[in-house]
């Protein structure tokens, strides 16, 4: 567990400049000093406040079965380097509110899952990355992986890890993502997941693929506005399989599950999108943990 220490050191540097954009629930690096929190060091960067809920964890806090681990990748453009452009780095879009609300729903929907209740960003080149076999990455149109991140993600996926991609739109962002994945998994094709794929039925029966809009488009869609963030873009779910035919990566393209998670508490955001997003979110977790 000591090796986890490398993760917060890097992230805390980022937090120092980004804290103004983050949810007030997020703790500062000072608050998460060793000894003040029973949680493992790797979870402390954006760690939780010392609320009673945290103090009464059902078992030893040093290990939880499931972490909603968001990939803090190196990006450019909107999220150049590991710095922060407009609205923060691209990896941190909707962060951490989407993560927290998603996890609070997961706690009720997957009531038997021993899930860590708080956001959990991870670096792809962290040696402990594989301890968290479920990764979530979004806005991958701005992803610009370093060689060490490419190496780390490749090892993660080939060892058996599972990556969920979300919230990227249009041919340009697709082209960037495709290029990045070609670096990570050269020769592994990206293929469509048909509606009869098990991922649509592991927990909820999902019979229709929806385009989940961001918050603003969601409001407009009620009055007939488009749900898409780019003209004529249709939602797609694709995947990448390993050599034994096991799904490693699920790609939610031209859709934004994360915004639906984040704004599920918004009374003006259409229920059908947040319902679909949560159903997909649950199915992807159950599928990843059993297949």
């Amino acid at each position: 567990m000591r090796a986890f220490a490398s993760l917060p050191v890097v992230l805390s540097l980022m937090l120092t400049s980004a804290s103004g954009h983050l949810d007030p629930l997020a703790r500062s690096a000072d608050e998460s000093a060793p000894g003040s929190n029973p949680l493992p060091e790797s979870t402390r960067f954006f760690g939780p406040p010392p609320t009673p809920a945290v103090q009464e964890l059902p078992h030893h806090p040093a290990f939880r079965e499931y972490y909603f681990s968001r990939v803090a990748y190196t990006g450019y453009g909107r999220g150049w380097g590991r710095g922060f452009g407009r609205g923060g780095p691209s990896w941190a879009t909707d962060y951490p509110k989407a993560d927290q609300i998603f996890l609070s729903f997961i706690d009720r929907l997957l009531s038997n899952l021993d899930a860590y209740e708080w956001q959990h960003p991870v670096l792809l080149d962290d040696p402990q990355l594989r301890r968290f076999p479920y990764l979530y990455a979004l806005e991958v149109g701005y992803m610009n992986l370093t060689p060490s991140e490419v190496e780390g993600l490749r090892g993660f996926l080939l060892a058996g890890g599972f990556l969920v991609i979300d919230d990227f739109w249009g041919p340009r962002e697709w082209a960037n993502f495709e290029y990045q994945m070609e670096q990570v998994l050269p020769g592994y094709p990206i293929v469509d997941l048909s509606q009869d794929h098990e991922i649509f039925s592991t927990f909820y029966e999902i019979t229709e693929l929806l385009q989940v809009p961001n918050r603003r488009n969601g409001w407009w869609s009620v009055n007939g506005g488009s749900t898409s963030e780019c003209y004529g873009c249709l939602p797609q779910i694709k995947g990448i399989y390993d050599e034994e035919g096991r799904l490693m990566v699920v790609i939610n393209f031209n859709t934004d599950l994360g915004d639906a998670w984040e704004w599920a508490d918004d009374p003006y955001y259409p229920l059908k999108f947040s319902t679909y997003a949560y159903e997909m979110g649950v199915n992807m977790i159950v599928y990843a943990m059993s297949h």
Binding site: E65, N112, D114, P133, G160, M289, S290
Partner: peptide, 10 residues
Amino acid sequence: EPRWEVKFLR
């Protein structure tokens, strides 16, 4: 409960 043991054992 959902557990990684299931996935990796399979």
